[in-house]
Amino acid sequence: MNIQRLRTTSVLLFFAALMSLSSQAMAKAPIYTSFFSDLAVSGYDAVAYFNESKAVEGSEKFELEYKGAQWRFKNEANLNAFKASPEKYAPQYGGYCAWAVANNDTAKGDPLQWTIHQGKLYLNYNADIQAKWESDKVNLIEKANKNWPDVL
């Protein structure tokens, strides 16, 4: 009986220790990357959204680190444009889904579900969420701006 009680106590202490981890330790990164990658925008070229009005995959040949994530670009010109002004090209809310941030949450941003509004790039989780975003983006941007970066 004492061994069983000791095991139960040990298990409870283990879970209590897990639960007591600070929120700082559990915070999300400022730039969304998938669990198994450190690529921002899933490896898509953030500058191409502005220059080509489409999602374009970046190349390993044109890569740089910014805010703890790796950013890829189609060519050297786009890499240099980003280097000169990353805040101009990086997606808002670190590439997390803009609709989720507006709703005080986070979700992955899909590089194929994007919008440029007033010179800023926004990503959304999927096509259904993007439709919701598009229907009320001015209001949602205002909400998301209030929630960011506290949602992390």
Rank of each mutant, 00 (worst) to 15 (best):
N75P: 06
N75A: 07
N75F: 04
N75G: 03
N75K: 08
N75C: 04
N75T: 09
N75M: 09
N75Y: 05
E76D: 14
A77G: 01
L79I: 03
L79E: 10
N80R: 04
K83V: 03
K83C: 06
K83G: 02
K83T: 02
A84M: 10
A84Y: 04
S85R: 05
P86G: 04
E87F: 01
E87C: 06
Y89R: 07
A90H: 10
A90F: 10
A90P: 05
A90D: 00
P91F: 01
P91W: 01
Q92Y: 08
Y93M: 05
Y93V: 04
G94R: 07
G94M: 05
G95K: 04
G95W: 01
Y96M: 10
Y96P: 00
C97S: 05
C97W: 12
W99V: 06
W99D: 00
W99F: 15
W99E: 00
W99S: 02
A100Y: 02
V101A: 08
V101S: 04
V101F: 12
A102E: 08
N104E: 14
D105P: 03
D105R: 09
K108C: 03
G109N: 09
D110Y: 09
P111H: 01
P111E: 01
P111D: 01
L112W: 05
Q113G: 04
W114Y: 12
T115L: 14
I116D: 12
I116C: 13
H117D: 13
H117K: 15
Q118F: 13
G119M: 13
G119E: 14
G119V: 14
K120F: 02
L121C: 11
Y122T: 05
L123T: 10
L123G: 11
L123P: 10
N124T: 05
N124I: 03
Y125L: 12
N126H: 06
N126D: 15
A127V: 07
D128K: 06
I129C: 06
I129K: 07
I129N: 09
I129M: 06
Q130H: 08
Q130L: 13
A131L: 11
A131R: 14
W133T: 00
W133Q: 03
W133N: 00
E134S: 10
D136Y: 11
D136P: 02
K137E: 05
K137A: 08
K137H: 11
K137G: 02
V138S: 14
N139K: 15
L140E: 15
I141G: 13
E142Y: 10
E142V: 14
E142C: 09
K143I: 08
A144Q: 10
A144R: 11
N145A: 13
K146L: 15
K146T: 14
N147T: 07
W148R: 02
W148A: 12
W148Y: 14
D150K: 15
